[in-house]
Structures are given as structure tokens and as C-alpha cells.
Nucleic acid binder design. Structure first.
Length: 956
RNA sequence: GCGGAUAUGGUGUAAUUGGUAGCCACGUCAGACUUAGGAUCUGGUGCCGAAAGGCGUGGGGGUUCGAGUCCCUUUAUCCGCACCA
């Protein structure tokens, strides 16, 4: 009987759903395991064959863990709010709620066909008010918290009121937007609005006027991780810097914990490194320089205080506060002109012009505290306002940017680290001996740094300081399709909604388009107010809804809490998180921040949300090409095209052309060939066109389908090789325009979900990026058909109760061992290979004692076929209630081992010897072998190296 | 510029972690069978060579009895960060 996956797969999917096979709940008697996929944005394009890669891997793990005795939580949901969904809605002219619902339905249908073991009862959608109620709730909790640097955690902001009342903010060590100082008396004298401003300075969710990434085309601000090279990640629109009033999350307060927490996570080193870079910790010193003729001091940040003797000028960012008074009258106009010019430059232009040196002298001088020299103060936009203090001490001898600046303006360059030639280039050394350096002369750089830190602090010139690149996350978007920010303005004072007013539902509007001015769509909603006060009109960014969804899955329908204490303490954290690396600096930072905050306020059980994380690679597209000859409707098969291309001159060319029945080219004026050069540069002989990969099989074009594919090819002619049209191929991004999108639905229809699942795993290591290539899927499909046939040896279903041979047992147990180890190591490609080897070795074995454990072992990979065979073998329950087979070492014992014997490092012969004998016995047996005599030719071995169970080496 | 990763047949890959390089597949070649299927089965298939044999894991060098694996160097590709002081 044939393996009829078309009938088997839908039947079991329905049956699992009916039985609730994959429903899970809190069960204190069993150890928990939480396996999570990054939930998808339900985009309009539907799934392509690359999307399920990670889902398949996590599904295999889930089934495997479940069959190993764990209570496995494995949910799925949809990240439905945010820019992509909204842009798609705008493009198609429909309401985002409508398109999102339709897209979710489509995704769900596609996912269901693949036989995943999700507990769909726990499905969450971020755009569901019952869900985003808890996103808004978390926002309010952040709004009502500040970050205490002494106890290193979030605390209720209400705690600050009595402190301010008694001592002002003196001695308060808390994360804030701007440093401020006030006394208790000043606090008491403040108006309500002024006090609100002070508190806002400390809140973890706060509103402030800051420089933001404004994207006019999208009509919204963007977070740093949503901007790449000065363009928006979505759509690639230009982004400019603008000062705007925005909501932000004080992520920077958690920088040190986000950094430190990485160490214990089972994440790839590269991913941790990306996050470390993003957090960008640098330890240095904050130093104050006297300004000549002023009481003010100029504050800089440096990681290299050891180079202080090489400081020959200072540079301020054009946005620096001091520029209102610092420049001398003579330089005023020039400075103002520079400031105005740099303001106009977009972020993109600044990035593009990194090598151009610009700047203006302010006319003012600072004093080098160690040399006493007066050094000029410049402004330049190579100094960033947002990092450090927006001012630097320039060391042209040892910093390439300072060097370029000094060269351009003719400023002195003093080397202070031995080595290099500062006349030619800066010497950006991190080690070496200090020279020209007063009290640190002769010290090594590393010692000098420490010495200078101490010296600077002792002399009261500054103090050690840690700086982070990580910025607070801008949390408002001037868009429609997101969670409304649960804040209203009472007498103009931002006030959180009471929890009882949550969820603050997103109103249904007909006009949800963004505006170029930055006015959010919600501002156009009549009566967008709370108790008569206007509500905030911006919405939350895409990452808001995905920041704590893993907690919600634990208890998805709870209306009284994000997650119940019971569920949280049982499920705790995600043991295995599978998803793409593209979330490294977005979701995975925000989520960790969000979770740490919830941990601080006692709402999450663990400090870190994702214990182990695996990044599946991207599946690229494999495009096929056809070669159109001379712009005619004639298509030439790949190798003939290559042969024609290889011709070196007209004569050779025409010989080849005649051979294939093509008209010879008589002169260069024939056809579109315009010159000999262009002709032999292969510019004009063939044009290569993308062809739909779905009408190509093993790179052979289905010519009839091609003619029907597009009307202009209806009368196409082909020059075939061996009766076939062979296409060229290349690796590109999977996209509609390349005609290389492979839809999983089609693979499921042709081969079945089990084949697709196993093939995606077989394709290569999970974490590697690789092209999808439908060629080769036959190998896996063949395996499943052969496996099926083992049970139908006589035509009808039947397994024998005959005892297996030792060899059969050995094969089985070898496979069990290998497959189990591979799953634990996330090496699915090799485990699929192990199954194939197993089948090759078993031949035609129909014995129950072999086939039953093998079927169970295969079940996580190919759930449908194994469930079907399991039931045909007469079992009542589901195969997924069975335990994974253990391997029995007894069956794996090898009695003999073939030792490769090398003489002088070169393999000469093999000697079969029992395992477990002593080294001396091996030596004796090898030397006694007649082959050894042949190679030794009577010489005595100088040395013998014996690695028991591996190899024998003889050195003569 | 800084940081990280990768490089193995025609293709995807594997290698007991320093021990016979190329497992398992795809493709391909030869054969069997056949109601001609995109079926099934058997065998070959890294390169050069008639063979013996030689060469072979991006290139060069090193450590070692032995290197795809370790070290140095270099090239290419991919990714992350980037006037971050």
C-alpha cells in the first residue's frame, strides 16, 4: 500500500485538535520546559518556505522533550501591531484591523498544515485589547517607577515625595534625564506642574524633549534599532534628527544589568557580542578643564587620561550648551554659521561625510591642567552631542580623527606614546611606553591610565565615569496601528490612567493615515479624552507588544494579572527561544529590559527571560535563469550558451552556432551587436531572465509550462541539450520579483508536511544561512516512502514478532544514540542523516522490536506518518504519549576494531584487533603482522604510538 | 577603522573534536525491471593517471608520528558596530 500523506496528514491534524493532544497546564509533578518561537508579524505575503525553519526545529524539540518526560509549554501567537501591518494596510487601502485579521487567518492555516504541536488555546494577538491591556499596564508601572542606583532596581516613584520634602534631591542616586539639584525648600515652593516636571525627570517611562529619529515618509519617530545607515529599516526612507517631545523608556538605567546578565545566558557568542557592542560600555574619566577668562569649566569624557600631555586643543559638538556664550565676538558669526549649517545636515549626510574635516575656532582657550598650556577650543560635528559630554580633549598624536583635524587647522601634534610617526599618521596605540608625559613619563600605557585616574581624582580635576552607548528607547509613534499610550493630560500635566480604565482601546477610525507634520491620527479622533481631559495621541512602537508576550502565554486569559503568581512560578522563563538574529538589538534588548523591570517590581520570577537562544539562519532563494538569444524569442540551454560564450572569434562562434541550428553571425551589424568589443564582452549575445522556479525541476525547464507562463513566451523556441532545457541558477533573496519564492503549501501538497519538515532540517545546520533548493527533497521523501514500505512487506500492513539479529539491534541502538545526542545539540541535519543510514543498514527488516522504537524516535521529525503507523501497529493512544527509547550500550559493543597502521605517518595497512586489549598487546600484534614486515623491511621501529581504539603509528 | 563568523567534490553538507577527509543526500554515469512514471532496485562517481601511484579541506608558513581541526600570516565572502573620544 502506498504512502498516502495527502490522506494521513489532514486526518491526524484534525484528530490531534479534537483530542487536545497538545494542550498543557501547570503540573507540579512534572518538570517544566518552555520552548518558544519568536511569534511572526502576519504580513500580507504569507509564509514562504524559509519562515517555518525555526518552527520545525522547535517543534521537534518540543515533541522530543515531551516524550522525555517534561511538561512542555509551546505556544504560538501573532505580533500584529506595528508599522509593517499598517504599511500593508495603507498599500492595500484596507483597515489594518481587517488586513491583520485576514493575514492571521492565512498564517494560521499555513502553520496548521505543517503539523506543529502548539497549544493554540494559549494563542495571543498583540492587537487584542485583552492582551494590550497588560502592555499598557506595564507602561503605567514604569511611569510610576524610578531607578534607584544604590539598590540597583526600580522603585515606586511615590517613595521620592517624602525624600524631596525633607532633603530635596541632595544625595539621591537615581537615573534621570538631566542632572538637577534642588533643596527641600525649593521643592516645597514648586507648583504642581513644576513638581510634575521634576518627577518626570526620574520616571522609567517618561516624556521629554529630545533629539529623535524623525522619518517624514513614515510620519513617525523611530528607535535607534529601527534606523540603519540613516534610513528607516521599514521602507528605507530618509531619517532626520529633530528635537521633539516624546515618550521614552529609561532603558539606559538598566545598561549595566543588561550587560552583566549576558554572561550566564546560553546564547551564541556572536549574538552576545552584538548586544555588548550595542550597549557599548566604556570606562573612562570625566575631566574638567578651566576656561581662560571664565569661571565655568569645560567637562569632557575620555577613556585615555594617560594622553593628557598630548592634548593640544579641545573640540565641542555644535549643539554644545556653552556655545551661547563661549565664542569670542570676533568668531561669533563664523561659529553661528557653522552651527546653522550642521543643523541642516541630515544624519545621513553626516554619516556620508565622515572623512571631510570641518570645524570652526571659537576664539576661546582652555587650560591643560597638567601642562598649564593654553589650548584653543574648536567646534566640529565629528564630536557628537549625544555621547559623553559633547566635548572632547583632542590628542592628535594618538587619535586619527583628532590628527586629521589638527593637520587641517595646523594645530600642534605632540606624541606621548613611544613608536609610530605622528608626522605621517596618528599612532592609535593601546600599549607602549609614555614619553613627553611629565609625571607618567616612562610608564606603560595601561599603568599610566590607572595612575592618571588616581591623579585626576586626587587633584579634584574629575572622576572615573562609565559611559554607555545604549540610549533610552523612544516609545511614542505618531501612527495609528499600535497600543494607545494610557496617559491623559490633566491641566496639561501627563497623568497615568487608573488600572481600572484599562484597556484603553484603540478607537476604530476610517482615516488612519499618518501626517507629514507629526500630528498623530488619534489627534483627529473626536472625543479622544478621559473624564474630559485630552488623552495622549501617539501610540506605542512595534516592540511594545512583543516585550512580555512570553509571560502572557503562561496564563493568557487572566484578566486580573499579566500572569498569575502560580503560573509564573511554575513556568518561570523560556528554556529555549528560537528566532532570527535580526532582533538582536531590538526585541531582545527591550524584552530583557522589560523583564528586568517586571522582576524588580515582583511580577516576573526570573531576571532573564530567555535562558537558551538559537538563531536559525535565513533561507535564501535559489533563482533560475533562462537565456534569451539576441533579444529573439529563442532560449538557449545553459551549457550551449556557455559553449557559445566561450567562442573566441567570429569563426569559432559561427561554427558553434551552426552546430545548434542557429543563424551564423555574418557581421557585427547583425542584430543588436554594436561593436566587436561589446560583443566579446558578452554584453549583448544573451539576456538572462528570471524564470519561475516552480516550472523548473532539477534545473530542467518545463518548456510547455514556460510557454504558458507569460503570453510573450507563448511561441518561444528552445535550443535544447540532450533534449532538455537546462537553466542557470543563482542565490538571491527570496522575493516575488526574482520568481524564486517557494510556498510551503505547494511542498506540502506535493510531498507532505513530514517530508517538508525533515527536508528543512536536512538542508544544513540550523544556524547557517542557506539557499532553499527544492532539488534534493526527493531524497527525504524517498526515505519516508521506504520507511513506510517496511511495514508493508507483504503488501498489507504487518510487522513480525521475530527476534532481531545482533546486527539489527546494533543499528537501532546506534541510531537512537546518535539521534538523541543530535537533538540535544541542535544538530538536526545529522540526525536526519542518521535515520537514512539506519534504513540503509536495516535493509528489509519488518521486526516489531526494531520498528516500534524506531517509529517513536522518528515521531518528533515526522509526526503524521509515525502516528499513523503507531496506530496501525495496534496502539490505542497517541505515539506522543510514549517515552523516547533509550539506547542500550550492550548492543553497541564492538568486538573487533580495525586499526589503521601508519609507518612514518603514512597509512600502510589495517589490522583487525579486539577492543579493550592493552597497548603492549596491540604493539606486539601489529609488529607480528606480515604487512608490518613488508613495510619495516627488517628495521627496528624507533617509536610506536598507539591510541587505543583509534590508530597505530610506527616511526622508523 | 573596530569586533564577530565562515571558507571542504558539480551541489547541500559530514568528520568520533588532533587519528583512514568527503558520511548522508542531490546531481550524474552504467546496468536491471517496467503498463515509459517525476516509479523501483543494483553498482560507479574528489581530482590527475591505462595502472602503479600521486595530489587534495581558499593561499603561504609552523607545531606534531599524524592537522579540515591547534598556532602565525594572508586572501575572499557574510554579519554587527562605527567620527562613541
Amino acid at each position: 500500500m502506498e504512502y498516502n500523506f495527502k490522506e494521513i496528514e489532514p486526518r491526524w491534524q484534525k484528530e490531534w485538535s479534537r483530542r487536545g493532544t497538545y494542550r498543557v497546564g501547570v503540573d507540579p509533578d512534572r518538570p517544566k520546559y518552555y520552548i518558544l518561537d519568536m511569534f511572526p508579524y502576519p504580513s500580507g505575503a504569507g509564509l514562504h518556505v524559509g519562515h517555518p525553519l525555526g518552527y520545525i526545529a522547535s517543534d521537534i524539540c518540543t515533541r522530543y522533550k515531551r516524550m522525555s518526560g517534561f511538561n512542555v509549554l509551546h505556544p504560538m501567537g501573532f505580533d500584529a501591531f506595528g508599522l509593517p501591518a499598517e504599511q500593508y494596510a495603507i498599500q492595500t487601502g484596507q483597515h489594518p484591523a481587517t488586513t491583520t485579521a485576514a493575514n492571521i487567518a492565512r498564517y494560521r492555516e499555513q502553520l496548521d498544515k505543517l503539523g506543529f504541536s502548539y497549544d493554540w488555546d494559549r494563542c495571543v494577538e498583540t492587537c487584542d485589547p485583552a492582551y494590550y491591556k497588560w502592555t499598557q499596564w506595564a507602561f503605567i508601572r514604569m511611569f510610576e517607577s524610578y531607578y534607584c542606583r544604590d539598590c540597583n532596581q526600580a522603585r515606586p516613584i511615590a517613595e521620592l515625595l517624602p525624600v524631596f520634602e525633607q532633603q530635596g534631591n541632595e544625595g539621591l542616586n537615581a537615573a534621570c534625564t538631566v542632572e538637577m539639584g534642588f533643596t527641600a525648600a525649593e521643592w516645597r515652593a514648586m507648583s504642581e506642574a513644576e513638581r510634575a516636571d521634576v518627577l518626570m525627570n526620574y520616571r522609567l517611562a517618561y516624556r521629554a524633549s529630545t533629539m529623535v529619529n524623525w522619518c517624514e515618509a513614515l510620519g513617525t519617530v523611530l528607535a535607534n534599532d529601527e534606523v540603519k545607515d540613516g534610513l528607516s529599516e521599514r521602507g528605507g526612507h530618509p531619517v532626520e534628527q529633530r528635537r521633539m517631545m516624546q515618550w521614552l523608556l529609561r532603558v539606559s538605567a538598566y545598561a549595566e544589568r543588561l550587560l552583566g546578565g549576558l554572561d550566564d545566558l546560553a546564547w551564541s557568542e556572536s549574538l552576545k557580542e552584538i548586544q555588548r557592542n550595542w550597549i557599548g560600555k566604556s570606562t573612562g574619566a570625566q575631566m574638567f578643564f578651566d576656561i581662560k577668562g571664565s569661571d565655568q569649566k569645560l567637562e569632557v569624557f575620555t577613556t585615555r587620561p594617560d594622553t593628557i600631555y598630548g592634548v593640544t586643543f579641545m573640540v565641542l559638538a555644535p549643539e554644545h550648551d556653552y556655545l551661547s556664550w563661549l565664542p569670542t565676538a570676533g568668531q561669533r558669526d563664523e561659529v553661528d554659521a557653522y552651527i546653522a549649517a550642521s543643523k541642516k545636515r541630515s544624519e545621513r549626510e553626516r554619516v556620508a561625510d565622515t572623512r571631510k574635516v570641518t570645524g570652526v575656532f571659537t576664539g576661546a582657550y582652555a587650560v591643560n591642567p597638567f601642562t598649564g598650556d593654553e589650548i584653543p577650543i574648536y567646534i566640529s560635528d565629528y564630536v557628537l552631542a549625544g555621547y559623553g559630554t559633547g566635548a572632547i580633549m583632542a590628542v592628535p598624536g594618538h587619535d586619527s580623527r583628532d590628527w586629521a583635524f589638527a593637520r587641517h587647522f595646523g594645530l600642534p601634534i605632540v606624541p606621548v606614546v613611544e613608536g609610530g610617526n605622528v608626522e605621517e599618521a596618528s599612532y592609535d596605540a593601546k600599549e607602549g611606553r609614555m614619553i613627553n608625559s611629565g609625571i607618567i613619563d616612562g610608564l606603560d600605557v595601561k599603568e599610566a591610565i590607572v595612575r592618571m585616574f588616581d591623579e585626576v581624582e586626587a587633584r579634584g580635576l574629575g572622576r572615573r565615569k562609565v559611559n554607555y552607548r545604549l540610549r533610552d528607547a523612544i516609545f511614542s509613534r505618531q501612527r495609528y496601528w499600535g497600543e494607545p499610550i494610557p496617559v491623559y493630560y490633566k491641566d496639561g500635566i501627563p497623568t497615568a490612567l487608573p488600572f481600572s480604565a484599562l484597556p484603553l482601546e484603540l478607537p476604530k477610525v476610517s482615516d488612519f493615515s499618518p501626517s507629514r507634520s507629526g500630528e498623530p491620527p488619534l489627534a483627529r479622533v473626536a472625543d479622544w479624552s478621559y473624564e474630559g481631559w485630552p488623552l495622549e495621541t501617539s501610540t506605542m512602537p512595534g516592540f511594545a507588544g512583543s516585550s512580555a508576550y512570553y509571560l502572557r502565554y503562561m496564563d493568557p486569559t487572566n484578566d486580573g494579572a499579566l500572569v498569575s503568581r502560580e503560573a509564573d512560578e511554575y513556568w518561570r522563563d523560556v528554556d529555549l527561544y528560537v528566532g532570527g538574529i535580526e532582533h538582536a538589538t531590538g526585541h531582545l534588548i527591550y524584552s530583557r529590559f522589560w523583564n528586568k523591570f517586571l522582576f524588580d517590581i515582583g511580577e516576573a520570577a526570573e531576571q532573564e527571560p530567555f535562558r537558551k537562544l538559537v538563531n536559525q539562519g535565513m533561507i535564501q532563494g535559489r533563482s533560475n535563469f533562462v537565456y534569451r538569444y539576441l533579444g529573439l524569442n529563442v532560449f538557449v540551454s545553459l551549457h550551449i550558451k556557455e559553449e557559445i560564450d566561450a567562442a573566441g572569434n567570429f569563426e569559432e562562434l559561427n561554427v558553434v552556432l551552426r552546430k545548434y541550428g542557429l543563424d551564423p553571425i555574418r557581421s557585427i551589424s547583425d542584430g543588436p551587436i554594436t561593436s566587436v568589443t561589446s560583443f566579446f564582452n558578452r554584453n549583448s549575445l544573451f539576456s538572462s531572465l528570471h524564470v519561475d522556479v516552480n516550472i523548473v525541476r532539477n534545473d530542467v525547464l518545463d518548456t510547455d509550462a514556460f510557454k504558458k507562463w507569460r503570453p510573450e513566451f507563448a511561441d518561444a523556441e528552445f535550443v535544447l541539450e540532450d533534449g532538455k532545457y537546462v537553466c542557470g541558477w543563482g542565490i538571491e533573496k527570496m522575493s516575488k520579483s526574482m520568481y524564486n519564492v517557494v510556498n510551503p503549501d505547494r511542498i506540502v501538497a506535493d510531498y507532505g508536511a513530514d517530508t517538508l519538515r525533515m527536508y528543512e532540517m536536512f538542508l544544513g545546520p540550523l544556524e547557517a544561512s542557506k539557499p532553499w533548493d527544492t532539488n534534493g527533497i526527493d531524497g527525504v521523501h524517498k526515505f519516508l516512502r521506504r520507511f513506510w514500505r517496511l511495514f508493508f512487506a507483504s503488501g498489507d500492513f504487518g510487522v513480525s514478532d521475530e527476534s532481531p539479529t545482533a546486527a539489527e539491534f546494533k543499528t537501532l541502538h546506534k541510531t537512537i544514540k546518535k539521534v538523541r545526542e543530535d537533538i540535544e545539540n541542535f544538530s538536526f541535519n545529522t540526525s536526519v542523516a542518521a535515520f537514512m543510514i539506519c534504513l540503509n543498514e536495516l535493509g528489509l527488516c519488518d521486526k516489531r522490536q526494531i520498528l516500534e522504537p524506531l517509529t517513536i524516535l522518528l515521531a518528533p521529525f515526522a509526526p503524521h506518518i509515525t502516528e499513523e503507523l503507531w496506530s496501525r501497529m495496534g496502539h490505542e493512544g497517541s505515539i506522543f504519549d510514549e517515552r523516547m527509547p533509550e539506547y542500550a550500550p550492550a548492543h553497541l559493543v564492538e568486538s573487533e576494531f580495525e586499526y589503521p597502521v601508519s609507518v612514518n605517518g603514512k597509512l600502510r595497512f589495517k589490522k583487525s584487533l579486539p577492543l579493550g586489549i592493552s597497548v603492549a598487546e596491540i604493539e606486539a600484534a601489529v609488529l607480528a603482522d606480515e604487512n608490518a614486515g613488508r613495510w619495516l623491511e627488517g628495521r627496528e621501529p624507533k617509536k610506536m604510538i598507539v591510541v587505543p581504539g583509534k590508530i597505530v603509528n610506527i616511526v622508523i
